[in-house]
Amino acid sequence: MLEQSELALEVSHLKKYFRMKGGTLKAVDDVSFSIRRGETLGLVGESGCGKTTCGRTCVGLYDKTGGQVLYRGKDVHQLRGKARKAFTKQVQTIFQDPYASLDPRLRVEEIIAEGMRNHHIGAGPKERRELVYALLEQVGLRREHASRYIHECSGGQRQRIGIARALAVDPEFVMCDEPISALDVSIQAQIVNLLIRLQKERGLTYLFIAHDLSMVKHISDRVAVMYLGTLVELTSSSELYAHPAHPYTRALLSAIPIPNPRVEEQRRRTVLEGEVPSPIDPPPGCRFRSRCPYASERCAQEMPPLQEVSPGHLVACHAVSGR
């Protein structure tokens, strides 16, 4: 295993349940992974599989139901007072929805400077204003945007403002919660490249949540695939795309169109049948078995653990590990 000091985030057996009318919604159920410093871990899965909840619980935005999240050796959910405040400077979040995550009553400048004020970055209002201008330019906006309100900005501009806000406190770790899914494709690439550039400049660590596999491949060192609250596969980005092991990952990858009509015509696509089952009180066994072409009797009885099938390649599937 890796040395402690190299790890930025260490998640072990994390659980996050929501109590609902019809039962318990298991949004995140026994998820374990770790992220090295300076690394980007992509977290992918379809809508509603618990990616966002997982990410938010990891950075302490939600309370956990069980398990543990360590950031540089400290339990994220036990932090109080000064330690908690220091944590908010180290760990930042880029929110999924740039419309909901920015206060409509504040000017862009105030939004970006909020974290700076909290953490006493910049000596006074004047210096902070200069820092805000610098940040705006860094994320590809202009100074004029500082005095605008959110409703005067476009979706792409808002997402950049969200990025600038997160970077304003000079964090080490950024949880990017689908930072690009609210944007159109032309802007997506710009934002991703911006994130990659910032990572190089500042040595950031990312937890990059997305449902778009091709974009995740572009930015991530390692990728974790999530299905209905559990991790099904975790490996390096290149390995995942070259040798996907879990049937769900294979299906996901085969959904990426290949920009070559001849290849596209020839290849066989794995199309998943059926709907995602409800995460409320899920039955025991493998969560994916209702849609899995290889499902067996064993899958219905025991949940497959995340096992190493080759160095650094973890898969949770009886069919794969039993081979």
Partner: peptide
Amino acid sequence: RDFVLAAKNLGT
């Protein structure tokens, strides 16, 4: 709302 969550996340 997310913007309140974001403010908490910034240590406000």
